[in-house]
Simulated assay, not measured.
Amino acid sequence: MIALLAWLLALPPLIALSIFVLETLLGLGRLREAPPPPGQPETVILMPAHNEAATIGSTLDRLQPALGQNIRLLVVADNCTDDTAKIIQSRGHAVVERHDPENRGKGFALAFGCDHLLASRDERTLECVVVLDADCETDAASLSTLTRTCVARRVTVQSRNILREASDAPAKVQMSSFAFWIKSVVRQRGGMRLGGAVLVTGTGTAYPWALFKTLPLATSNIVEDLAIGIHLTRNRQAPIYLDSASVRSAAADETATLSQRTRWEHGFLQTARTFAFSAIHDGILSRNRKLLHLGLHLLVPPLTLLLLVSLTALAATGVLAWLGGDWSAFVALAAAILLAAAAILLNWAVEGRRWLSARAMLQLPLYMVWKLPVYLGFVRGKSVGWVRTERTDAGTEQRP
């Protein structure tokens, strides 16, 4: 009986760790990608912005070299109370203003922008829409590759979404940036090599216009990008990941990192709780391999929580093994934790050192303790919505 209890405790983290190890080992190294066919498709960059007057000018200046050649910008100034719209207009870019304080969220802003495009005279020639956050930057080569791949393959394409390296940032910020890279790059590569699904990460995402205008965008979901990816995969229109196109943004400062991670991780956990098992069930019944993989992917909690749960379960199975004499569950779980640690270290050695220094890595136990309030808040049912995110460089980011 004690041995059975030990296995019941060990099995959930064992499953999650196994999926994580497989994805992260397969995610080692860049993907080999065939270049898309020539010819720049007619593209609109759709950028939601809320009270971005302090930084929108520099964002537009960085983006300007990537525009032209059938690529234009449309900004949705969403519930702004500052000069965001005026600054955009002064630089010669299209902007539409939305005022609806009852319906806040990036999804509503995207839906508003989509409706504007549907009503425009260019709707019939439009081929591709790229969603880009107002705090992100990209380059002409990435945009060209992203949009040409999207239109040629008629599929949603998620680019390589990373945070800028900051070797002088506090250890907590570095570890958060490293965990973000594991989630948004390494595991995406693993998903592609498995032939499974990848996630939409909310910025640097290209959609065929014929598909984008049919999406259920108008939602207050704090992880609307994840919900869109699930919707697409369920409908056998699973997104793909493109390593050769990149978008970048600055990491949040130390104080804002915790609130930012709280928003992201609560949203992920809520979505996973709702969709993971149904995606696995439906993927098996419908023989939809990508949906099955997406369900399995959702079973893996954020990296810090995965380690916390696994180590707690290891301690519990160790106590049960000492009481009952059967160490099999403890050994299996310990081996899985060691494999996960090895996979993380391999990825860090290959590329992850750009975001996490060896000195900062030594503070992992403190980082895990620092993250505990995030998960305790989720257990208590504390709701999370829009928050301002203070960045490590000049300016701030505000999400609608």
Results as ranks from 00 to 15, higher is better:
390 E>G: 12
277 F>I: 05
316 A>T: 07
92 G>M: 05
297 H>V: 02
102 E>R: 14
323 L>Q: 08
122 D>P: 00
319 V>K: 01
335 A>R: 05
81 T>R: 13
174 Q>M: 12
3 A>I: 03
122 D>W: 03
292 L>Q: 08
282 D>R: 13
145 T>G: 01
136 C>S: 13
67 L>G: 12
224 E>F: 13
247 V>Y: 02
336 A>C: 04
219 T>I: 07
99 H>L: 12
342 A>V: 10
243 D>Q: 10
37 P>I: 00
400 P>G: 14
144 S>E: 13
118 L>G: 13
322 W>Q: 06
143 L>R: 00
329 A>T: 06
194 L>S: 08
146 L>H: 01
4 L>K: 03
63 L>A: 07
49 A>I: 00
309 V>Q: 12
373 P>N: 05
251 A>H: 04
202 G>L: 06
34 A>Y: 00
62 R>G: 11
159 S>H: 02
50 H>E: 00
333 L>Y: 06
375 Y>I: 10
396 T>C: 09
175 M>G: 02
241 Y>P: 01
204 G>E: 09
336 A>E: 02
361 M>G: 10
242 L>R: 02
209 W>S: 09
221 N>L: 15
30 R>I: 03
158 Q>A: 05
18 S>N: 08
291 L>V: 07
87 I>T: 11
328 S>M: 04
260 Q>A: 14
262 T>D: 08
351 E>G: 12
252 A>T: 11
219 T>C: 07
287 R>N: 08
176 S>I: 12
216 P>K: 09
58 S>L: 03
226 L>D: 15
197 A>Y: 03
390 E>Y: 07
179 A>R: 14
200 V>F: 07
187 R>D: 12
286 S>N: 14
62 R>H: 11
7 W>K: 01
19 I>S: 06
254 E>T: 10
310 S>P: 04
218 A>K: 10
28 L>C: 10
79 N>C: 06
182 I>M: 13
278 S>C: 08
359 R>D: 08
35 P>R: 03
117 L>W: 00
156 T>M: 08
375 Y>P: 07
148 R>K: 05
47 M>S: 14
381 G>I: 09
183 K>I: 07
62 R>W: 04
201 T>F: 15
170 P>N: 08
185 V>Y: 03
3 A>H: 10
302 P>I: 10
122 D>Q: 10
20 F>P: 00
302 P>K: 03
296 L>M: 15
111 A>K: 08
142 S>H: 02
233 T>P: 08
94 A>D: 15
185 V>W: 03
23 E>R: 09
160 R>F: 07
6 A>D: 06
329 A>E: 02
54 A>V: 02
285 L>R: 14
41 P>I: 11
168 D>W: 06
358 A>S: 09
253 D>A: 04
44 V>D: 15
89 Q>F: 01
394 A>T: 06
147 T>G: 01
1 M>E: 14
276 A>T: 06
55 T>S: 13
36 P>D: 07
171 A>I: 06
314 L>I: 04
89 Q>D: 04
172 K>S: 12
216 P>S: 14
12 P>S: 05
195 G>I: 07
61 D>K: 02
372 L>E: 05
27 G>R: 11
4 L>E: 13
260 Q>R: 14
247 V>K: 01
260 Q>E: 09
303 L>T: 13
348 W>M: 04
272 A>F: 12
13 P>A: 09
